[in-house]
Design a protein around this nucleic acid. Structure first.
Ligand SMILES: Nc1ncnc2c1ncn2[C@H]1C[C@H](O)[C@@H](COP(=O)(O)OP(=O)(O)OP(=O)(O)O)O1
Ligand SMILES: Nc1ncnc2c1ncn2[C@H]1C[C@H](O)[C@@H](COP(=O)(O)OP(=O)(O)OP(=O)(O)O)O1
Ligand SMILES: [Mg+2]
Ligand SMILES: [Mg+2]
Ligand SMILES: [Mg+2]
Ligand SMILES: [Mg+2]
Lengths: 598, 598
DNA sequence: CTCGTGTCG
DNA sequence: ATACCGACACGAG
DNA sequence: TTGCCGCGT
DNA sequence: AGTCACGCGGCAA
């Protein structure tokens, strides 16, 4: 279908024939990543560094290039965000965090500057050895797809509000928006941006309140399609999934691109929603590729070593899943902006970072990623397809109007604990360590934990220790409280038949979903009633989206990060979470309806 | 003579009537301090920070404004220094050190950013209390002078080479110059600058090899004059002294300015050299003031609280003795460039620095300084006038051609130890801990110390432990080696009568000088002979200038400095050193000659 | 105490 | 090509 | 363990 | 006026 490109990646027009698909080619997408931060010159040392802050030096989360935002005036976005932010407590907190990052980076640079030539050469040698080892493990035999819905929540809303399709629209409220359609993105409006700032960027922006049941239903519908191409597909979140289509390709004598096109058509037929797909020899590259020709496009990374290396060479490191704002800054400070430079600077990387971190970065430089489904841990086949891994923790937290009264706070703790207890019962788990989380009005986060003598799961058991933790922090003024259970194990006390089954560990994924849905009906008020008017600002779909996904990669910390097991589990733990997508019974019914509708 | 200025400081033309005196007025001198580093904008965080280094971002030691360099094109100096430096091992080491400083500064800024309003207010309150306490101790009753010879070594050399007076000239060699005359300073040539860079800045620069005996003689001659105005004057180095002229003023019904003018005339008459003088209510301000109207000028800081505060308000912190390159950068990073801002930001300072450091900075902000001679420790009147404080350490070190042969290194250690032993015998001291110092060819400095069972002072005793330390470091390639004794005590074994007296602690300062001079004749070859051609690059006057001065102020370190006893001993320990100026018998004779000559 | 570092001239 | 020497203090380990 | 942080959606 | 909720991993203390 699409001819191969020199960079080893090719774009294909959407099967629906929409003009907006396939307009981006891989190498074009690359320079779209923040070249504006380059080419500036460094402040002469010794100069005053703390004049009045201005928007030029403000580092916004919102300026990294994302799909649909290549043509945005990033300077303007930065300026507007800065103007709206600069006097807020939130901004002050951002500055505090940035100062810490700066300190760590300076530390790292000091370490880098003190490396002798001989040491660097030695580390380079070690890096070369590691590279050879990684290279030996490269597997180009499989074909992966990563499918990701376009502006997912927003597109679902447009199904009910076709009038909004051509207008800038965001899903969320004035406090926070979850996503925005591509019209809105032209203005710089995007996920995780506060609504009031989005409105400043785009005064005509339409706001739609989120309705997670719809998204759940649509998500289930998509999976019905995914399942056709890979019965063991792994969902990364409500709106995305990884598929190993090697077998499907073989069985149907199709290329990955052809399968991708067919899959996209199938998804659109099933949901009237478009998605974008990346085709690559491993899951990580497929994920990167799926973003390149959004919306409603697809991109191929040709399955040869040369093509992969070419693809990765100029790829901005920020595109690599697991390299976020801080890691990007850190590597930039070392002169590294592309994955190719990760290889070039392999000596420096080996010298500065822990062995496992270096392994991850070098892997990114080589364009490696997971090529097999499932993890190294026990999995359990389920009705939705996929594997289940034991969860490590469960939590519930809420943001609310500033609160300082201890009575209010204890009541809030009670509500949260009750919510948590219900979730734990639904999950059939009990916890040995409880953590209280507080966010003070200046956005500083505190956590206080206690490990109990035994495992607990009822509100009655959990509230007293949580209150004890809370009282130790008083007095204080907070804007968020959370409770969390960890050190989990299966709940042994029985409830009904399903509960008993859960206790025995005999649940399959479908049974779990049903159980979840049932529990979900029974509660959902205690916590929310105290939130009052702010409810619309919190965009988790009650139970489901609280646990959308696990991360595939951990990262960075303290003096210097060590991303232990990061490469190892890359896009492996990420996929475990799909069976944690807790679907209500109602959602399943709606899924059936949608499937029938097409 | 000079009318008072609004800033509380006044300048007086030199008594010799030279046109170049008094041309600088206090408030003019202030902005001369590196405004070029201000007004630049900070690098956006997240931007690449390690492109190819360029001269713009190079931080030179040589760009801070010093006397006679107000009109220098600092950008050009920076560029030239950078071009001459950038490929050198020395430069690499400077970068390493700067990276460490950057790291510490970033750390500090992170700490600053995490201070809450309440905390800041609390610290401000504490700072106010400390300020009140400091203010209560302010003493404006005394009149201090600080006299500092103009381009001292260079001016002395011009006595013998009058043809050089109008030409740019430096004292030193291609490796390092000790000072330069004011003609040379117009080109940016200055103390501690490598000669080859100075020549680049000023190709016609004349180089004169240093002759420390001349400077010693001239120094002694100046002291003969100083003694008249304050028999207890305290010398800060060969070329400067502090005088409390309160009594002289009273006895002769003269103002400080009148005394200063008379002193300057006296010094010129005695030496045919000019000096500059600061007049102020304390020693520190006098020192700052003496620099303001160099050369051959004087400056007054009026003895009133208002005048002092006005003087200090816009004074660049770098002018404060004890605040060097690193402290300046550190404070600049907090937005502090002037002493006035030290007061403005008192809350921040109290929050970030140790109590004693904050005390020092606040003291600087108030324009405080020592108002009394002598220290809190035992002093012993001496013939030269002044007090003696027990020394803490004694050392000998040499730079030489890169060396990696262990045989050469052991021979060098032997020579150094012999030199040290001779010095220790001269001083009548023995040491319990020995330190070996190595500077590798990449300019990294290592010290290795050992504390012995008992005190030692002979070369035979000291060499084995030093060799042991040395061998533990092999193999390595070095450019400098040094040996040092500390944990000192009086030598109890007897030599001749003087030695016996020394052992008994009955030496006065004059006796010490004689003893030193005698010892000095006996050695001085072992170490030097191994230096060969590089001898002219080392600019300590053999024995004497090895110990020119003690520091008055300690400062800054690690996470954040605590200048313990800094304010307390400010310009107190600094003055102890005058009796450590070891004068040879020959030098004393020459002094008498010079004194007679005028 | 040991070591590295800042400061002064 | 070529980047000093000596003394002292501080603070982390 | 505890506490804090980075990361993804 | 006004800046989410969740799970997971790394690391230092
Ligand atoms: N920070 C967030 N908080 C809450 N929900 C989020 C957040 N980011 C994303 N979501 C939700 C809304 C999104 O529609 C959905 C899928 O995310 P994602 O695939 O990253 O973007 P998107 O599907 O909206 O746009 P696109 O994939 O076209 O760039 O997850
Ligand atoms: N870094 C150094 N290394 C060795 N000797 C030095 C160094 N700095 C200064 N000296 C010597 C040479 C100087 O003539 C003498 C006095 O120093 P100083 O008073 O600071 O400068 P200066 O007397 O040469 O010029 P001026 O005082 O006019 O600015 O000490
Ligand atoms: Mg999406
Ligand atoms: Mg997605
Ligand atoms: Mg001088
Ligand atoms: Mg001087």
């Amino acid at each position: 279908m699409a001819e191969e490109q020199t960079a080893g990646a090719a774009a294909a027009a959407g099967p629906t024939g929409q003009g907006c698909s396939g307009q981006h080619e891989v190498l074009q997408a690359v320079p779209a990543h923040g070249p504006h931060v380059l080419g500036t010159h460094q402040l002469p040392v010794g100069a005053a560094a703390s004049q009045q802050p201005s928007w030029q030096q403000y580092s916004s989360v919102f300026t990294a290039s994302k799909a649909g935002m290549q043509n945005v005036d990033k300077e303007k976005v930065k300026r507007v965000v800065f103007e709206m932010s600069k006097d807020s407590a939130h901004f002050k907190n951002e500055q505090r965090k940035q100062a810490q990052v700066d300190a760590r980076i300076a530390q790292l640079k000091a370490k880098a500057a003190s490396i002798s030539q001989a040491e660097l050469a030695a580390h380079q040698k070690a890096a070369d050895a590691k590279l050879a080892q990684l290279e030996a493990g490269r597997d180009l035999s499989r074909t992966w797809l990563h499918a990701d819905m376009d502006a997912f929540y927003a597109s679902v809303e447009e199904l009910d509000r076709p009038d909004l399709k051509s207008k800038p629209m965001a899903v969320g409220g004035m406090g926070m928006i979850t996503t925005a359609n591509y019209e809105a993105r032209k203005f710089g409006v995007r996920s995780a941006m506060p609504g009031f700032i989005a409105r400043k960027l785009c005064p005509q922006l339409a706001f739609v309140k989120p309705d997670f049941r719809k998204y759940e239903a649509a998500s289930v519908a998509t999976r019905g399609v995914f399942k056709v191409y890979d019965p063991h597909f792994e969902a990364g979140s409500l709106d995305e999934a990884y598929l190993d289509v090697t077998d499907y390709c073989a069985a149907h004598s199709m290329t990955g691109e052809q399968v991708a096109a067919e899959l996209r058509a199938g998804v659109e037929a099933a949901t009237r929603l478009t998605c974008s797909v990346g085709i690559a020899p491993n899951a990580t590259l497929a994920k990167v590729a799926s973003d390149l020709n959004k919306p409603n496009g697809q991109a191929l990374v040709v399955s040869s070593r040369e093509a992969v290396m070419a693809f990765v060479h100029d790829l901005p490191i920020r595109k690599v899943p697991g390299i976020g704002k801080v890691s990007e800054q850190t590597l930039n400070a070392l002169g590294i902006t592309t994955c190719g430079q990760l290889l070039q600077q392999r000596g420096l990387i080996a010298a500065l970072f822990s062995s496992i971190s270096a392994r991850f970065f070098l892997g990114a430089g080589l364009g490696l990623g997971h090529t097999q489904h499932g993890g190294d841990r026990g999995d359990e086949g389920g009705a939705g397809g996929g594997s289940v891994v034991a969860r490590k923790g469960i939590s519930c937290e809420r943001t609310f109007a500033n609160m300082s009264s201890s009575a209010d706070m204890e009541k809030m703790a009670d509500n949260l604990v009750q919510h948590l207890a219900a979730d734990m019962e639904s999950e059939g788990i009990e916890s040995k360590t409880l953590t209280l989380k507080l966010k003070t009005t200046d956005f500083a986060v505190r956590t206080r934990a206690v490990t109990l003598a035994g495992h607990v799961h009822t509100a009655q058991q959990m509230l007293p220790p949580i209150l004890k933790l809370l009282r130790a922090e008083l007095p204080c003024e907070i804007r968020l409280m959370g409770v969390r259970g960890s050190a989990l194990r299966r709940l042994t006390s029985a409830g009904d038949a399903l509960d008993a089954a859960a206790a025995g560990g005999r649940l399959n994924a479908l049974q779990r979903m049903i159980l979840q849905g049932r529990k979900q009906q029974q509660r959902g008020e205690a916590v929310e009633q105290q939130q009052g008017e702010q409810q619309d600002e919190q965009h988790c779909s009650m139970v489901i989206s609280y646990r959308q996904l696990a991360q595939d990669l951990a990262i960075m910390r303290g003096s210097m990060p060590s991303m232990k097991q990061r490469l190892l589990r890359c896009h492996m733990t990420c996929l475990m979470m799909k069976t944690r997508q807790v679907l209500s019974a109602a959602a399943m019914v709606r899924l059936a309806q949608m499937a029938r509708a097409h």
